[in-house]
């Protein structure tokens, strides 16, 4: 399914264009993060820096904690009663678990797209307009229209839905629904976009469209994507983190990880022996 040689060349191109990790401040910096679900120790001492304007992929076998860690980054774990998070996570140097930080504000800055498309049972327009509306981002209807249009354009959905913005969002196809959810997430102009296996419920064509979109979003956002597909990680990301049993095993440039893994566990996973 994936042409390895072709992949290699794309990756090399990316290296040349925009990889200079040591120079820029990390967008998100997590230190010694531990997560507990009741008695279960789900995330063990994870430390990772996530760069701006980069796609970072979290890979690993199912149940390894990659989604859990992703949900720490916009405090979605707060909505689960039994979850406890320890350690520090800094967004632009600011601790997001600081009691003075309102998760509402944080989530407007750190958007999220879920595994299954979850459009609200409202019209396409209202789905996209919802975030800007509640945050008071548009002064009037014209501005809101602008935001909706530009978000749908950036999510590459505008041409398909511009004539039926009043139709319910749940009536779209799976791939369109997921792009609608992406449009909804970027309508609030977040700085970071978290994607939790955004293509797992989609067919190959829709997956290709969303992947293309992710690559384009990189220009404006820091994108973190959780995926169980190594090929997808290789296609869309510049940085890759490999999680195993709640631990961050290896983190580095995507090319490095896939061609020259340092940890034997990473190697076993990539070569298909675990996972």
């Amino acid at each position: 399914m994936v042409d390895m040689a072709a992949m290699g060349t794309t990756m090399k191109d990316m290296h040349q264009t925009d990889r200079n990790p040591t120079m820029t401040e990390p967008k998100i910096s997590a230190k010694n993060v531990n997560v507990f679900y009741g008695e279960t120790h789900a995330i063990k001492d994870v430390t990772v820096d996530i760069a701006d304007k980069t796609v970072t992929a979290f890979i690993g076998p199912s149940g390894c904690g990659k989604s859990t860690f992703l949900r720490c980054l916009n405090r979605m774990n707060d909505t689960i009663d039994i979850a406890r998070v320890q350690g520090t996570i800094l967004l632009d140097g600011q601790d997001i678990y600081d009691p003075r930080i309102d998760p509402v504000q944080l989530r407007a800055q750190v958007g999220m797209v879920f595994q299954k498309p979850n459009p609200f049972p409202k019209s396409i327009y209202d789905n996209v307009a919802y975030g800007p509306r509640i945050h008071g981002m548009a002064a009037n209807k014209a501005e809101l229209d602008d935001i909706v249009e530009s978000s749908l354009r950036r999510a590459a959905l505008w041409n398909e839905v511009k004539d039926r913005l009043d139709a319910p969002g749940t009536g779209l196809s799976g791939g369109q629904q997921q792009r609608l959810c992406i449009a909804r997430a970027i309508a609030t102009s977040p700085e970071v976009l978290l994607m939790d296996e955004p293509c797992s419920a989609l067919d190959p064509i829709a997956t290709a469209q969303v992947e293309e979109l992710i690559d384009e979003l990189r220009a404006n956002y820091s994108v973190v994507i959780v995926t169980h597909s190594m090929q997808q990680a290789a296609r869309v990301s510049q940085k890759t983190a490999f999680f195993h049993l709640g631990q961050l095993v290896e983190f580095g440039d995507t090319g490095e990880i896939f061609t020259n893994p340092r940890d034997p566990r990473t190697e076993s996973y990539i070569t298909g022996r675990i996972g």
């Binding site: 504000q105 407007a108 981002m137 602008d146 354009r153 950036r154 977040p190 700085e191």
Partner: peptide, 23 residues
């Protein structure tokens, strides 16, 4: 696909960032 290298003409120009608006 949209052209992302130049900001879309429809994109609202905001003086303030998301964080400030939300705050």
């Amino acid at each position: 696909m949209t052209d992302l290298s130049a900001p879309s003409p429809n994109a609202p120009r905001r003086e303030r960032g998301t964080a400030e608006i939300v705050a």
